[in-house]
Design a protein around this nucleic acid. Structure first.
Length: 976
DNA sequence: CGCTCCTAACC
DNA sequence: AGGTTAGGAGCGA
């Protein structure tokens, strides 16, 4: 190659996929051979060759090569096993075309280059380097951003589809960095399609900005501590090595050994006959005609080539019917069936999962649905998932259901899909059916599903079953029995550092597979469409995949319960609660709209008054809701002494700061505090709750069983576990929670449950004694610590002791206690020391819990619930300390959570046995709320109290009494 | 539009 | 200081 020569390098593999996806699927030759991608490839290549002859556009090539990936594993996999790990297997009908495409390149008389163990990109990089060193120019035909790093004064990238040429300036414009910084940029951003990790939270824009500021990746990583934004700084520090690894992954190898030297890529005149004969064999008539005309060959005189195609035999891991994950019974039978062996075989099988969307079935008639239900009866298993119009189980409409009977075998039944064109109202039913195909009438489909969903002999498997359970209940079906993969995962792996138990996450973790996302299906933001208006074949792929994933997750996770000794936790504390919570959510609690609206009005008035005063005092109108603006007014304009700063360096304006300022006599902070409280009450409660009411005036919260680490429930949409109680104005909101005529609300709450549990677990004689005698526990603590008699104790002393008691439960620190009591840290330290002297059992408990957690990586409640704290071994002292405190708290908080769960599970049968109609509505961690017929109140209270007080029995007999206060009243405020 | 930060409601 | 959910501000894509 000489100066002035021009090398064209075609990224053949990228070309193939573009050709495949650009063309309608399943283009076949007359004998059935799929050739769609070959056709697209030939057309693109032909066009490229034609264009490149036209010297008016660019420089005509003197050298030319088409370069392919050879194998899926390269040297990069040695650096990083997961490289390209989430690449899906190529579509089935594309596989036989790979060989044909290489044939095509040869027919064009062009060099066809690939090399074992190297990616096409590395070969391209190496040829590019050789060409540039020889003084030539290079055009790389590809749009892959991985190749941008090669762009330079003599090297451009050509996107043939878009007819765009990218030189250094265009790269800079597109990515914000020059090509020589592309590698650093890619290392930061990562690449999901190649599974290059990058740094989380850094996208192309941020990366470009950071590189612009710091110059290059290494400098950036070294100086990461200077970055202002919290999350960004932490990620850059935590993932620095990951960024460096990413950099080596994305850096192309320019020194690949070449089997074909650069000079051999010299172009020569194509052999017309060879090309025409190939094109004829492929039955590409129009391209044959064009090529014949251009090359001056008479196509009719050329014999069609004999093309031998080997369709590779499908390996077992490509079998969509799913030997990938063994069906229970079949694949497992040969194993020694110890729990651990079963777990291991399932884990290995699941990790090798292959998903094939094209194997999923859309069911549009009764006969097919019946046949699937027969299959479920045979296997005794049915993974089941409902698709509905929203995430709110109590409000949504059913759109379709999907299920799987074994790994890889899954189907979707569309039930209420509408026209994607969005003209549902204008179209007749007939027109809709013509557009989207027939759907089983919803009643007919549910009638077929019902006997199986209610069949004792068929285990239903779901992910977050409570949702599906509720949706089906609203259609008259009560699912049973069932397993819930989310709850199994929660019982197994509840952890502070591992994120969650959502299906996508579990799938990636256990199956190594990223399922189609809801966004991918329906879009997001403005472009989002309801699932009912999405193309049914896409919904089939999505929904059936969910059922398939759920089934496979169950196969991996369920055996772990026994192997890890958590079956009891799952079966006694998790699974039975699903239906209990579902019924509570279904019932909802009655709310008086009038009371809320009156409160809103009152709050609004006060709020307006305060706003006027605030503006008056500040001498300007500003938004008191903006901590930023408020900080400027208080500490800038008014020059008040600023105290704390927040993590991001702003002045803190939280209650504590404002209260302190108010104590110093300035009128503004007090009003801000009041304004904030009113705004909170109004915005979060009185204004918002009415929007959650149904036509009957009831609010149905949704409980999450798997979103806390400790075993507590959480409540959302709306959160009914944080309804105000502390202040009088806040409590007024509780008066709006009422019972219907002839009924009252009963509130029953455990008294000091966590402290009692602490007294039991840590075995503290004085505490246990005090609880047995029914003494004031905080006063007793104060008396022990400060030597003050309980009689006539100043309230401040008791307050401090109370804070310490709570602090102990929270895994006390001098810092935290000092903060809570607004006292110096050394004083708080002295308190803690004295506490430990008085109650040495507490220190022993804390030390042994920490030691246990460090050794095992988890702690346990009295009922065996496990909470994992892997980070308790962190080298970072503050991370470690945080995990230690959490590990101390978890057995206490978690045991309390277990106890109330047990009470809830036993409550309904106990009430029924007593012939009572009381209905459990809400749970607020240590409190249960019921709706009770007025004439049954006296009979109900003792039953409720007894079930709650005896909930730990017979598994655990606490050495302190458990006490429950229960009261009936017209509204929640008075009952509490 | 979506994310982070700050604040605040609860046990 | 342990465990949560929610709303508004502010910012960047």
């Amino acid at each position: 190659m000489n100066k002035g020569d021009h090398l064209f390098l075609v990224d053949g593999s990228a070309y193939i996929f573009r050709a495949y996806h650009a063309l309608p699927p399943l283009t076949r030759k007359s004998d059935g051979l799929p050739v769609g991608a070959v056709s697209g490839f030939c057309n693109m290549l032909w066009k490229l060759v034609e264009e490149s002859r036209d010297t008016s556009v660019g420089v005509a090539p003197t050298h030319f090569a088409v370069i392919f990936d050879h194998s899926s594993t390269t040297f990069r996999n040695e650096l990083y096993a997961d490289y390209k790990a989430n690449r899906e297997a190529p579509p089935e009908d594309l596989v036989p075309q790979f060989a044909l495409i290489r044939e095509a390149v040869r027919a064009f008389d062009l060099p066809c280059i690939e090399k074992q163990g190297f990616e096409a990109d590395d070969l391209i990089a190496t040829y590019t380097r050789h060409a540039v060193e020889a003084g030539g120019d290079v055009t790389i035909v590809s749009s892959d951003k991985d190749l941008m790093q090669l762009v330079g004064p003599r090297v451009i990238l050509y996107d043939q589809m878009k007819d765009k040429r990218l030189g250094p300036d265009e790269v800079k414009e597109k990515f914000g960095v020059h090509p020589d910084k592309m590698i650093d940029l890619q290392a930061l951003v990562g690449d999901t399609s190649d599974n290059v990790p990058g740094v989380p939270g850094i996208g192309p824009k941020t990366a470009a900005q950071l590189l612009d500021e710091y110059g290059d990746l290494e400098t950036l990583l070294e100086r990461a501590a200077e970055i202002k934004q919290n999350k960004r700084r932490e990620n850059l520090i935590a993932f620095a090595d990951q960024a460096r690894l990413s950099k080596t992954l994305v850096t192309l190898d320019q020194n690949t050994p070449l089997d074909v030297p650069l000079d051999d890529l010299f172009i020569h005149e194509p052999d017309g006959e060879k090309l025409i004969s190939f094109l004829k064999a492929m039955e590409f008539t129009s391209l044959t005609r064009r090529a014949a005309a251009q090359l001056g060959t008479d196509a009719s005189e050329v014999e069609s080539a004999a093309i031998a195609v080997d369709t590779p035999a499908r390996g077992p891991d490509l079998d969509p019917a799913g030997s990938a994950v063994a069906a229970p019974g079949a694949g497992d039978a040969a194993l020694p069936l110890t729990p651990a062996a079963l777990v291991e075989s399932r884990r290995a099988a699941a990790a090798a999962s292959v998903f094939d969307h094209s194997a999923y079935v859309t069911i549009r008639d009764a006969a097919t649905l019946l046949a699937w239900m027969d299959e479920a009866r045979e296997t005794g298993l049915l993974a089941f998932d409902t698709e509905a119009s929203s995430l709110s189980a109590m409000k949504c409409d059913l759109v379709g259901v999907s299920f799987a009977t074994r790994a890889g075998r899954a189907a979707y039944v569309p039930l209420a899909h509408v026209s994607p064109s969005g003209e549902a109202d204008l179209l007749s039913d007939k027109a809709v059916e013509d557009e989207i195909g027939p759907q089983l009438p919803i009643d007919e489909a549910l009638a077929i599903l019902k006997p199986v969903l209610e069949d004792d002999a068929v285990l239903k498997i779901g992910q977050n079953v409570k949702y599906d359970y509720l949706v089906m209940r609203r259609h008259g079906i009560t699912m049973a029995p069932f397993d819930d993969t989310m709850l199994i995962s929660y019982a197994l792996d509840a952890s502070a550092s591992l994120a969650g138990h959502g299906m996508d996450e579990l799938s990636e973790r256990f199956l190594g597979h990223k399922p189609m996302s809801y966004k991918e299906l329906c879009g997001s933001g403005k472009g989002a469409r309801p699932i009912a208006a999405c193309a049914i074949d896409k919904v089939t792929a999505y929904a059936a995949e969910d059922a398939d994933v759920t089934l496979r997750l169950w196969q991996v996770l369920k055996p772990r319960l026994v192997a890890e000794g958590l079956a009891t936790v799952y079966e006694r504390l998790e699974r039975p609660l699903v239906a209990v919570l579902a019924r509570m959510e279904e019932r909802g609690i009655k709310v008086d709209r009038q009371i809320l609206s009156r409160l809103s009005g009152r709050f609004a008035q006060k709020q307006a008054g305060l706003e006027a005063e605030i503006a008056e005092i500040a001498g300007e109108t500003f938004n008191p809701g903006s901590p930023k603006q408020l900080g400027e007014v208080l500490f800038g304009k008014l020059g008040l002494p600023g105290g704390k700063k927040t993590k991001s360096g702003q002045w803190s304006t939280d209650v504590r700061v404002l209260e302190d300022l108010a104590a110093e006599g300035h009128p503004l902070p007090r009003r801000i505090v009041d304004w904030r409280q009113l705004t909170k009450l109004k915005g979060t409660y009185t204004d918002t709750l009415p929007g959650h009411m149904d036509a009957q005036g009831r609010i149905h919260t949704s409980y999450s069983m798997a979103s806390t680490t400790t075993g507590r429930l959480s409540s959302s949409e709306p959160n009914l576990q944080n309804i105000p109680v502390r202040t009088e104005e806040g409590r007024a909101i509780r008066t709006a929670f009422v019972a219907p005529a002839g009924h009252s609300l009963v509130s029953a709450d455990y008294s000091q449950i966590e402290l009692r549990i602490l007294a039991h677990i840590a075995d503290i004689p004085q505490l246990k004694e005090a609880f047995r005698e029914g003494l004031d526990i905080h006063a007793m603590t104060a008396s022990e610590m400060f030597g003050v008699p309980v009689e006539g104790m100043p309230s401040e002393i008791r307050r401090r002791a109370k804070a310490i008691n709570f602090g102990i439960i929270y895994g006390i620190s001098a810092f935290g206690l000092a903060n809570q009591l607004s006292i110096p840290r050394d004083e708080a330290g002295t308190y803690i020391k004295r506490y430990f002297e008085r109650f040495p059992g507490i220190r022993d408990y804390m030390d042994s819990t920490k030691a246990f957690a460090k050794e095992h990586g988890h702690v346990e409640t009295l009922f065996g619930r496990r909470v994992h704290y892997p980070d308790i071994r962190s080298p970072n002292a503050s991370v470690r300390a945080f995990n230690e405190r959490a590990a101390i708290n978890a057995p206490i908080q978690g045991t309390a959570a277990d106890i109330i769960r047990r009470a809830m599970i036993r409550m309904e049968p106990a009430l029924a046995d007593a012939g009572l109609s009381a209905r459990m509505l809400l749970q607020v961690h240590d409190e249960l709320i019921f709706e009770v017929e007025d004439d049954q109140i006296d009979a109900t209270l003792p039953v409720v109290r007894r079930v709650m007080e005896e909930a730990a029995l017979p598994v655990v007999q606490l050495s302190v009494p458990i006490e429950v206060d229960a009261k009936a009243a017209a509204n929640w405020d008075e009952a509490h």
